[in-house]
């Protein structure tokens, strides 16, 4: 499945763009994690990495569709 992924903070530096197209194996958030980890191993060095789907933190079981707005959420540091 082809997905468009929005990136923020350090994840943008690692993926190299504000929005990156990714061809992933599988359909869930967990599958996306595996694809990301294989393609961008530097992501594994972060303190944490969450995936947001349609502006909500998503669990690994969540099934994705190509219409979803998907974003990488590296460790937040607001305030």
């Amino acid at each position: 499945m082809k997905l468009k992924i929005k990136t923020f903070g350090i994840s943008r530096d690692i993926l190299g763009g504000r929005e990156v197209e990714l061809d992933m194996n599988g359909t869930s958030v967990g599958d996306l994690r595996k694809t990301l980890s294989t393609r961008y191993p530097t992501l594994d060095k972060l303190n944490s990495l969450f995936i947001a789907v349609n502006h909500e933190y998503a669990p690994d079981e969540k099934v994705l569709s190509d219409k979803d707005e998907i974003a990488l959420i590296p460790p937040v540091s607001g305030g």
Binding site: F8, A52, Y57, G78
Partner: peptide
């Protein structure tokens, strides 16, 4: 509110 904001709100600083 400020403690929670720092933990969960997607804002980043460099």
């Amino acid at each position: 509110i400020i403690d929670s904001l720092k933990q969960t709100v997607p804002i980043w600083k460099k």
